[in-house]
Simulated assay, not measured.
Amino acid sequence: MTTTDLAGVLDFLRAAEAIKTQTRSGYTSAGRAESVADHTWRLCLMAVVLADQFPGIDFARLIRICVVHDLGEAIGGDVPAVNQSAAAPKADSERADLMTLLAPLPAPLRDHVTELWDEYEAAATPEAKLAKALDKLETLLQHTQGANPPGFDYRFNLDYGRQYTAAPPLVAAIRDALDRDTLRRAEGA
């Protein structure tokens, strides 16, 4: 790696730090707004804990996809699913933000991260499908355990990401358990 490449990598890593402070719509169990980095960390932990249950999955690729899936949010922040619009797809602006964030990287690294992000968005490979499913499940899990504010819309989660979490059987079983938890939270709200 050249000195220029190293400088670009460090610039990128400094800019990516912003996901530590970008907040999401959910709250931790302590009542603090969840950060994008908080979400990404537990998504990766879920992949580590569950990967052996999915034979044929390239674990290294799965983790790489999980790590980069929300990097664009370092610039534009998270847009909660309940606030997203078909007229202004989140993926378009998030990809543009990702490209801005990746600009300091040497071209091969920039291309690699972009390919992983695009793979996640397309959800066409087994690894991307599993990453997408775990991403949705992590969000549901956080919403069922977080100290969310009054008026939090738990029932929205009953349909959230369903197309990604209906299969395989373990993903569906986790989804069913989280739906039950969601209903309990909705009834208690």
Rank of each mutant, 00 (worst) to 15 (best):
103 A>E: 05
111 D>N: 14
94 E>S: 13
66 C>D: 12
50 L>H: 06
49 V>P: 07
86 A>H: 13
107 A>S: 11
53 Q>C: 11
117 W>K: 08
72 G>S: 00
111 D>K: 15
46 M>C: 04
76 G>V: 01
54 F>V: 04
54 F>D: 02
116 L>G: 01
74 A>T: 03
110 R>Y: 05
113 V>G: 04
48 V>S: 05
98 L>N: 04
107 A>D: 13
67 V>D: 10
80 P>A: 14
88 A>F: 15
113 V>F: 15
64 R>M: 09
104 P>Q: 00
70 D>P: 00
71 L>S: 05
87 A>L: 10
49 V>T: 15
62 L>T: 06
50 L>E: 03
53 Q>V: 06
72 G>W: 01
104 P>G: 00
95 R>M: 11
54 F>H: 02
77 G>S: 03
109 L>P: 05
84 Q>A: 06
80 P>Y: 13
80 P>R: 10
57 I>D: 04
96 A>D: 08
74 A>D: 02
52 D>Y: 03
78 D>Y: 12
89 P>V: 07
57 I>P: 02
90 K>S: 07
81 A>G: 15
44 C>I: 06
92 D>I: 15
95 R>L: 10
89 P>S: 07
116 L>H: 06
45 L>D: 03
86 A>S: 12
91 A>Q: 14
97 D>C: 15
77 G>M: 02
110 R>W: 00
103 A>F: 02
89 P>Y: 06
100 T>A: 08
48 V>P: 02
61 R>H: 14
108 P>A: 04
105 L>A: 02
92 D>K: 13
56 G>N: 01
96 A>Q: 09
92 D>R: 13
106 P>Y: 02
109 L>D: 13
79 V>S: 12
105 L>F: 03
47 A>N: 03
91 A>L: 10
63 I>S: 09
75 I>S: 00
91 A>G: 12
96 A>E: 10
79 V>Q: 14
49 V>I: 15
58 D>Y: 07
82 V>W: 11
78 D>N: 14
92 D>L: 15
88 A>C: 11
113 V>L: 15
101 L>N: 01
83 N>H: 15
89 P>E: 08
47 A>Q: 02
89 P>F: 05
53 Q>E: 12
87 A>K: 11
